[in-house]
Design a protein around this nucleic acid. Structure first.
Lengths: 207, 207
DNA sequence: GTCTATACAGGGATAGAC
DNA sequence: GTCTATCCCTGTATAGAC
């Protein structure tokens, strides 16, 4: 959090209300009036603390990015089977998305809606942390001989993170499918895909 | 397409303009005025042909779903290696998302923004086609002994489709990462993940 | 720092002429 | 079926009192 403490309490309420509403209804679907009402301040007060609606949105977004970027460290344990190490990462990652639900949704929205400048911002803030962290782990595993040389680490990272992200965003839809019984168990899903991926990229046949 | 031919040409222009704008700017970010302008008709004309903004949106969305639902058949070839069959499916799927770019974006938006009723609609229209098609293929492969029994077919399907969807929606961000060199080659990505997944779920060691 | 009141633009939607 | 003109509301943002 980059929030200073000498700011009045109302600023915090505005930011929280904005985060909730932006994440639920999107930027265009959220009005300053609604935010002001939820934060129990007047519209003018919102504009006193934030230059514009867009400035407020960016502020909220930055907080979400920081929160998300900080939870990566130490996610991958130092020892154990490839499958278990990947599984721990995937399971934690998906639960973090759940826990930071609103921030996750904000960021997902930006992935779709954001223009190129915005996407660059996320690439640098969020993606570069999560992605590169996972990436270097896979590269290390290649060098140590656990992972086959002919797999592209970036593809593996995208595969794992992408499946997790998709699970998060589509679970409302997935649970309508009869054959999908895991929609209420994110961590389980994370471990299941890790198992498949680990088998898929492993050099040693550890069945 | 459920479009009747006895409708005036302007209706088609309205629908096309709406599809473009809704997919680029979202429902709330798109005004009827903007649609009317792009379709070269008056606002009142839009309301003459469509009951409300929401009705127009749903119509556009339905077309997108139908277009998408229809391209599934025959995607999985009858013969060949598991890896190649999955690869063909994934490659075609990801290219279809590119080709139907606007429709894909519309549907992705709904995955995030839609309420429960909407998500049910997609589950029945789009997901049930793509997902179940892939699902039954994996189940068949389990019965014929190509795929291990301890993998959940639904997880495999989600893994593959999810990675593809994530690639589509995040490629603007991914291309900002130095280590990701596949962002301009969707089909390649589809094949690469199929290879990993096929290895991961295969019973026979076909390396 | 907080409010009420207001300016002004644009939103969705309708009336009624042609 | 298409238009212009209009209604009414809500949007962002500001002015100015306290």
């Amino acid at each position: 959090m980059t929030l200073q403490n000498n700011k009045p309490e109302s600023v915090g309420r505005i930011l929280e209300a904005a985060e909730i509403l932006f994440s639920e209804k999107g930027f265009e679907g959220t009005s300053i009036s609604a935010i002001a009402k939820a934060a129990k301040v007047s519209k003018a007060n919102v504009y006193h603390h934030f230059e514009s609606k867009e400035a407020l949105h960016i502020q909220v977004l930055k907080s979400a990015c920081e929160d998300f970027g900080n939870i990566v460290n130490g996610l991958i344990s130092d020892t154990g089977l490839l499958e278990d190490r990947l599984g721990k990462f995937a399971g934690t990652h998906i639960l973090d998305m759940e826990r930071r639900n609103r921030g996750t949704r904000l960021i997902l929205r930006e992935l779709i809606e954001g223009d190129q400048n915005r996407q660059l911002l996320f690439a640098e803030n969020v993606a570069s942390n999560h992605f590169k962290h996972l990436l270097s782990f896979i590269q290390d595993s290649q060098e140590s001989g656990d992972v086959r040389e002919d797999v592209d680490p970036a593809v593996v990272a995208t595969l794992l993170l992408g499946a997790n992200v998709f699970f998060f965003m589509a679970k409302g839809t997935l649970q309508n499918l009869d054959d999908f019984t895991l929609s209420d168990n994110p961590a389980h899903f994370g471990h299941a895909i890790s198992k498949i991926i680990a088998h898929g990229i492993s050099k040693n046949k550890t069945e």
